[in-house]
Amino acid sequence: MSFTKKPESSQTPLSQSPQKIAPCCDPLPFIQTTNLSLSYNHIPAFKNVSLTVNRGCLTAIVGPSGSGKSSFLMCINRLVDLMPECRVSGQIQLHDLDILSPTIDVLQLRRRVGMIFQNPNPFPMSIHKNLAFPLKEHGITAPTHIEERIQQSLMDVGLWNEVKDRLQASALTLSGGQQQRLCIARALVLSPDVLLMDEPCSALDPLSSGIVEDLIFSLRGQYTVVIVTHNLAQARRIADYVGIFWNQHHTGELIEFGPTQQIFENPQHELTTAYINGIRG
């Protein structure tokens, strides 16, 4: 699987605010969920979510707290398997792979589907080892290959120049924004197809948040990104598609999904209108 790298996105300077440009993604379905439902301890978190994420696009999931956005995200890389008493039904298709099939190799799936969390969580190791450790665990042991990939991923997240002289320093000495970019680099170093991001900017200060947001925007086209965010303005700035989750009768539901422009300028659901106008949520 390879994506066509679009020069305009990969060359977006991190220091500048991204301008809304023509979608660089292919309108080809890449992740499809069908009637996806999830419950914790028999209490439904969300139900009947059917949506299509296009290849290379940036899809934002927004909605109030408790509407099941993060749980939805964790279904795509089967991280919900770690949650006790969690039950998932429905179907998720990643290209030709049935994600919920009990026979798939979950570790390989998670290599293809990287995830970035709300709080930057580098491992308590050096910057270098944070990136080398997952590579070695996935069977990439040639030192030159490892160094190349580490350098490339750090360059991709705009961190190379800041840390190239102190790769052996602890990752915990980096600032919050740098740590989050390192976590993104740690996901990128495994060359995933999909990146899941669970509110990646919400624990950062405004300046770092802006840098990370620019970075996420620059990933469009190269990776299929699904981002959960509480920040409607951010979703509007960076996403190609937006899905609105809403808590209906104590259960999350996808009430509307579509291209960003349509969702913000011509919403079909009255709750979407209220939400994006700040009346509800």
């Binding site: 890389n77 979950v106 969580n121 665990e137 996901a187």
Partner: peptide, 25 residues
């Protein structure tokens, strides 16, 4: 931190290597 386990799992690392290389040290 539970984050260690979660992010190690999200990277597709096995429980054994998470234990020996991350949690134990």
């Amino acid at each position: 931190p539970q984050d260690y386990r979660l992010s190690a799992s999200a990277l597709g690392l096995t429980k054994k290597s998470t234990l020996f290389h991350l949690l134990l040290p």
